[in-house]
Design a protein around this nucleic acid. Structure first.
Length: 850
DNA sequence: GGCCCGCATGGTT
DNA sequence: GAACCATGCGGGC
């Protein structure tokens, strides 16, 4: 790039040769830039001036030029190749340069293995308006929110890219700041004082400049929201669109045009939400560099749960909050946009500067200060968030393997050369040590890193798919810290840790409602969804359990196809989709719930909403029609099976293999929201019932939402088993139905025989069980479809017939004797015969029961 | 039969 | 198209 031409000023255009924007005649918008060789001051347009004041001028306009060097002390990239930045560095006697920030430090930096003490060389410059802001700006890079780099990553060598150096200089000087504040607190006021002290020198700028620059940055984020992580702080001018400013692909790729007025807006004092600059937590403080550039800002940002949390904004240590995609996805609408953007911007995780560019944003840690504090417990440690990962179904499953993002594993975990890996000691937020096996599998000429043995930890944390685990490093010991965050924007670590122990940590407060599914196991992962439901006057059902299932259902659905919870698009859709799904399912659910026949509800007022409370469990009923134009059978358990019965009935299945269970779990269809709710409603009643079951929608004739006993059954193997001699209502009902089915089958068999012999016997099928020969066809006929038939169930008093049927049932059942496979597919053999379909079923059944 | 290990597969980025 | 990664799945114990 060529230096600005003095002629530009003469022509009353911006001195910046890359801008050349005409300067307004009345000079208010004509602002001073750098001192020219002639002694005059260049005149810049407002925009460029702003950039200059913020110290971003060279980075903005000269980033591709030569002459960039790195501060010997801090590694910060300094442009030494133009007059603009002539005052931004100090030539060192021993060679090299120091940035002004380091050069002007009154004292040596705190010990930091990575950063040498700056030479206390007073600035040689006389006009250095941008100094503090410059320091700030430098944070910007394409990764404006860089977090302190992992220590081992800080061993920068000259071979490192310029970008890396530029990035890394900003961060990871935790120790330098520890001494900076006593009591672990650091306030901007103190900082301001320091700045003022420095500003006694002509080379420093005022805090207002800093703040202005900082806020400009915020504004940038606000305006250019979506490209989080790609804006360079301080690049507030729209010009950046047309210039390759960043020098890195990320920036170039995602740079967005920012409204040109942002600079002036901010310069005019509009400081968005960056107030009270105070109270930087010790943890944060420890990461704040002892220099003006490490200005820490605090903004109150409503947490997802509605409470306002103070979030520190450190230009040097942008704090842990939402990585862009995540934050965009999870932060509720309640979060003020501006705040959110600020948060997104400034809360950029302090991720490793070298690794971060390689990490997908979804792995960027967004652990909060509170979380960090909670983890650390004291201010003498430095917590460096490394990465985080949303647990996939398999991660949270029983396999006990947590798949680690490759780059994260390679960057932050010990290098392993053997697949066996090595044990890795990880401390959780409670200080408990866990030892995982960190290993890898060869995979497609690559590696797949996993942490094995995480199940106990995950269980202890009550995590499940969709939740997020965060990995941090606690210095100086370098201890690995494993935190977690419950899914959804509403829940954070605090949330999760305040949950009551046990699986039922999300027990609804409205436990008095019969249908509250008080035993539903859920999680806070869907609090955002809960809110959605609550908004729909569904607080009773808005319990996490209920919603959690829905969420899990979603996850289950997206298992294979787009099942990656980390999938950006998927995650971005989670809220809306699930919410919509809940909208539908809730309404449907209302219709699905029916009182027991002889039950009079008590009207309970909860949160202003009326709920019908039944002494007897509601039954779940929704008609399912098997054949068009013919209500052959209502697949409604409500008519004969109470919820309690169903609850007892459901578990009557032998447990399949683990693999089958897993498969069953993954069979869950998100589109079948009704099924989900159906199961919830059913299961919610049973204390002994397993966690929400997956609907069975494998029966072609059963529509999604079908509530028949077949469809509502839980996954195989769950729940208590009933003995063969069990006489509970459920078992009796099952037996009764089974008998009905058997009789049906026998009838069909008889019909066949009859057809070949006596034609009139078609109407009088042989009902004697002894003659049935169904043994060769096991059993899928043991359909437990709850029919709508008016046929009276066969009573238990049907002595010998019952016994015969029972023995036959046992012989027919593909399962163990006392168990009935509720997963069998009735459609095959129970497919109604042509006669049935001709509407003769009732009469046939009547015959059966007589 | 169930569990675990390790690899393979395939969807997503 | 390659890399990543979630998950399936076979085989051994």
């Amino acid at each position: 790039m060529s230096p600005p031409s003095p002629a530009a000023a003469v022509a009353k255009i911006c001195f910046n040769s890359q801008c050349k924007e005409p300067l307004p005649d009345p000079p208010p918008a004509r602002r001073k830039g750098w001192r020219l060789r002639s002694g005059e001051i260049s005149e810049l347009c407002d925009r460029c001036s702003c950039t200059f004041e913020q110290g971003n001028f060279c980075e903005t306009y000269h980033s591709d030029d030569g002459g960039w060097r790195n501060c010997e002390a801090c590694g910060k990239r300094v442009h030494c190749g133009c007059i603009v930045s002539a005052t931004a560095y100090v030539l060192l006697d021993a060679g090299g340069v120091d940035c002004v920030a380091c050069a002007t430090k009154p004292s040596a930096m705190a010990p930091n293995q990575m950063i040498s003490s700056p030479m206390l060389v007073p600035p040689l410059v006389t006009e250095r308006r941008e100094f503090p802001a410059k320091s700030w700006k430098s944070v910007n890079g394409p990764f404006f929110g860089q977090w302190r780099q992992a220590s081992h990553m800080w061993n920068m060598t000259s071979a490192q890219s310029d970008l890396q150096q530029r990035l890394s200089y900003e961060f990871d000087r935790p120790n330098t700041t520890e001494k900076f504040s006593s009591g672990g607190r650091f306030s901007v006021l103190a900082h301001e004082k320091k700045i003022e002290n420095i500003s006694d020198r002509p080379t420093t700028s005022s805090l207002s400049n800093i703040i202005r620059g900082r806020c400009t940055n915020m504004k940038v984020r606000i305006d250019g929201a979506s490209s989080f992580g790609t804006f360079r702080e301080g690049n507030t001018d729209g010009v950046q669109d047309s210039h390759n400013l960043a020098g890195d692909n990320d920036s170039v790729r995602t740079r967005k045009k920012v409204s040109a007025d942002c600079c002036s807006t901010i310069s005019s004092g509009a400081i968005p939400e960056a107030q009270p600059i105070s109270c930087i937590s010790s943890l944060s403080l420890s990461n704040v560099k002892e220099e003006p550039s490490s200005l820490g800002l605090v903004a109150s940002i409503p947490s997802a749960n509605g409470s306002k949390e103070q979030h520190r904004f450190s230009t040097r240590q942008p704090q842990h909050q939402a990585s862009p995609p995540l934050s965009k996805q999870f932060y509720p609408q309640s979060v003020n946009d501006a705040e959110l953007q600020i948060q997104m911007h400034n809360g950029k995780p302090r991720i490793d500067n070298l690794v971060r560019p390689q990490l997908l944003p979804r792995y960027w840690p967004r652990i909060t200060d509170q979380e960090l504090q909670q983890i650390s417990g004291d201010s003498n440690v430095v917590i460096t968030p490394l990465f985080e990962k949303m647990l996939s179904a398999s991660d949270a499953g029983r396999i006990g393997r947590l798949v680690l993002p490759k780059k994260c594993a390679e960057a932050y975990f010990p290098a392993i050369s053997q697949p066996e890996g090595l044990p890795l000691k990880v401390k959780d937020a409670n200080g408990k040590d866990w030892v995982f096996q960190f290993r890898f599998w060869p995979n497609n000429n690559s590696r797949m890193y996993v942490l094995e043995g995480v199940t106990p930890c995950i269980q202890a944390m009550q995590l499940q798919a969709g939740d997020t685990v965060t990995f941090s490093r606690m210095d100086p010991k370098g201890t690995l810290i494993m935190g977690f965050r419950k899914a959804s924007g509403a829940s954070n670590e605090q949330d999760s840790q305040t949950l009551k122990p046990g699986n039922d940590f999300s027990a609804p407060p409205e436990a008095d409602c019969k249908i509250t599914a008080k035993d539903l196991k859920g999680s806070v992962e869907t609090r955002n969804l809960a809110s959605t439901v609550e908004q729909r006057n569904c607080s009773k059902f808005a319990n996490e359990g209920l919603l959690g299932l829905s969420a899990r259902s979603s996850q289950g659905t997206s298992r294979r196809k787009g099942g990656n919870l980390g999938s950006k698009t998927k995650r971005l859709r989670i809220d809306s989709e699930d919410s919509m799904e809940l909208k539908l399912t809730w309404e449907e659910a209302q219709q699905l719930l029916r009182p027991s026949p002889n039950c009079v509800p008590n009207i309970v007022l909860v949160e202003g909403h009326e709920f019908e409370e039944y002494e007897e469990a509601p039954v779940f009923g929704k008609c399912t029609y098997f054949a068009a134009n013919q209500t052959r059978s209502s697949c409604s358990a409500a008519q004969e099976l109470s919820l309690e019965q169903l609850a007892e009935l459901i578990p009557c299945k032998t447990g399949p293999s683990k693999r089958s269970r897993v498969k069953a779990e993954t069979d869950m269809e998100v589109s079948d929201g009704l099924d989900t709710l159906a199961n919830l409603a059913i299961l919610g009643e049973g204390e002994n019932l397993p966690p929400p079951s997956q609907p069975t929608t494998k029966h072609p004739r059963h529509r999604p939402g079908c509530t028949c006993i077949v469809c509502i059954q839980p996954p195989s193997g769950k729940g208590p088993k009933h003995k063969q001699t069990c006489t509970c209502n459920v078992c009796l009902t099952v037996k009764r139905r089974f008998r009905t089915l058997m009789l049906r089958r026998e009838k069909r068999q008889s019909e066949k025989e009859a057809e070949t012999s006596v034609k009139h016997q078609k109407q009088q099928p042989n009902l004697l069980p002894e003659k049935t020969q169904v043994g060769n066809k096991p059993s899928k006929t043991s359909t437990l479809v709850v029919t709508n038939s008016p046929t009276k169930p066969i009573s238990n008093e049907e002595g010998t017939s019952d016994e015969a049927l029972e023995s036959k049932r046992l012989s027919l059942s593909p399962l163990r004797a006392p168990q009935i496979d509720l997963n069998i597919q009735p459609e095959r053999e129970e497919e109604p015969s042509p006669k049935f379909e001709n509407g003769n079923m009732i009469s046939l059944l009547a015959n059966v029961t007589t």
